[in-house]
Nucleic acid binder design. Structure first.
Lengths: 270, 270
DNA sequence: CACGGTACTTTACGCCGTAAGGAGTGGCAA
DNA sequence: TTGCCACTCCTTACGGCGTAAAGTACCGTG
């Protein structure tokens, strides 16, 4: 009688992820028959959860809160979604659909990769909560595979062999995610504490002096590192201090990384 | 009467982070005087929390659980620590003390950076919960500054100017953290679900065929990408499949990244 | 009209962080 | 020696969380 543990839920999740959303698909695979008509559908639940996450962060996504947004109780959601983990999976794969799927290679792979990196960064800043979802054991939804497809298509233009390509792909993804996470964390910290980056840094650095008077002697490089005046980035003059810093670091880091790819291609390519 | 919001707590936290742990420091800055003698100290609380996090992940670190480990109730901890956030800050800065502080530059900065990256990766795998702590608004403890000091010292040997150095530093840290996170997530998923990577992937890929029969047509590159047989890595033959993959990707990605640094140095250096 | 299946609600359980207040302990001043 | 007070540590409680269990209301079908 008992279904093999997990297997049943996994199949259910995969069906939902890959469900046919075409107009004629009717009831989204649900058995049509007698019984009270559903007032909601999976998409409504997922969209409400995404809206909540975008507005107030992943921490604001509770079953009660999502239910309330839809005029239901928390338990009502369980008719559409197995549990919260499944809801999060569906949220992730759905927003991944926003990402561009094609980067022209006319101007070479470097231009395409740069555009991909910037688009991805913007995406993560639009949906920072995606960064909090575990990377291993990916969702395996259609949009996730599409993102892989997109990036691999560009990377293949480098001519690198598969195993190196894998390493480069990982490095690019880690870099973009990490860089986005720094900015996202800074923004959420500012919102949660009500304290801007500037005020935070100012109050903390004065405390630092108070608590460690010999700081400059103990940490000369950190002192030097923190004092260098960072030049402004065109188009981002008005952004918060730390964020401007992060934007510049992103561009520099990306350029270095792509230089590395170029070097690898030059060494191993035809 | 009311202290400026947050300021008091921030000062308290900084004092704890930078407290003098020397033998003669007595009572760790606590006002000595009348009153019941403490049966614990901050270090005991922090150590217990770290042990818990190392064993069962950050999710297992609740005030009740830490208290129980010390034979106390949850509320007893609040005499040593302001709240859970402060405890987490102290945990982070304490484990950061495990990292090596010096990388000789005799054989050049590339060797030193490679060693740094590998050591950092091992560190994050020993304490994967550190990766879950927000990056913006860092802890600002002594050990954290020491890690900055260590890495900047090595990076200065490249001769790069400060703003580029900042970008490289960010890229390196993001890469190492991301790569470690993939492995850490895979391990914790395996432990939490009781399902190894291999079984997980096998069951999922069969579900994938079931749910999307035209997968190979829709996602040719992903199919190609997933099929390439990855060669084994010396010294890691017995590790789980996905983890071996991750180790190789780490080495490849690191090499590419350092190639990029070399190219940047060559272009801009003396 | 009655029945069965479905949507949705209420209630409840055991977790979480932590506020409030009380009990017991130990050093110091009277 | 006694009384006090600072201090540790406890119990209780509150509002949150995810979700199990059971009940209610609605609907299409027989």
């Amino acid at each position: 009688m008992a279904v093999f543990a997990g297997q049943g839920d996994a199949r259910r999740s995969m069906r939902l992820l890959w469900r046919d959303r075409a107009p004629g698909a009717g009831a989204a695979g649900r058995a049509v028959g007698s019984g009270r008509r559903p007032g909601l559908d999976v998409d409504a639940v997922v969209d409400a959860a995404i809206a909540l996450a975008d507005e107030d962060g992943m921490a604001a996504v509770s079953m009660r809160a999502v239910g309330q947004r839809l005029g239901r109780t928390a338990m009502a959601l369980y008719t559409y979604v197995a549990d919260k983990a499944e809801l999060v999976d569906l949220m992730c794969d759905k927003v991944l659909g926003e990402l561009p799927v094609d980067y022209p290679l006319d101007s070479g792979w470097r231009v395409a990769l740069t555009a991909w990196a910037r688009d991805s960064r913007e995406f993560y800043l639009r949906h920072p909560w995606v960064l909090q979802v575990s990377q291993a054991r990916p969702v395996l939804g259609p949009n996730e595979f599409t993102t892989v497809e997109t990036l691999v298509r560009v990377l293949r233009a480098t001519g690198l062999e598969a195993s190196v390509l894998r390493g480069v792909l990982g490095a690019l993804v880690q870099f973009v995610r990490g860089a986005a996470a720094v900015i996202a964390d800074a923004r959420s910290a500012a919102r949660e504490t009500g304290l801007g980056d500037d005020e935070w840094w100012y109050s903390r650095s004065s405390l630092l002096e108070e608590v460690s008077p010999d700081f400059a002697d103990r940490f000369p490089l950190s002192t030097w590192f923190g004092q260098e005046p960072p030049p402004p980035v065109p188009g981002n003059e008005c952004a918060p201090y730390l964020e401007r810093d992060a934007v510049r670091n992103f561009e520099v880091g990306l350029a270095v990384l792509l230089d590395g790819v170029e070097a690898t291609v030059a060494r191993g390519g035809a």
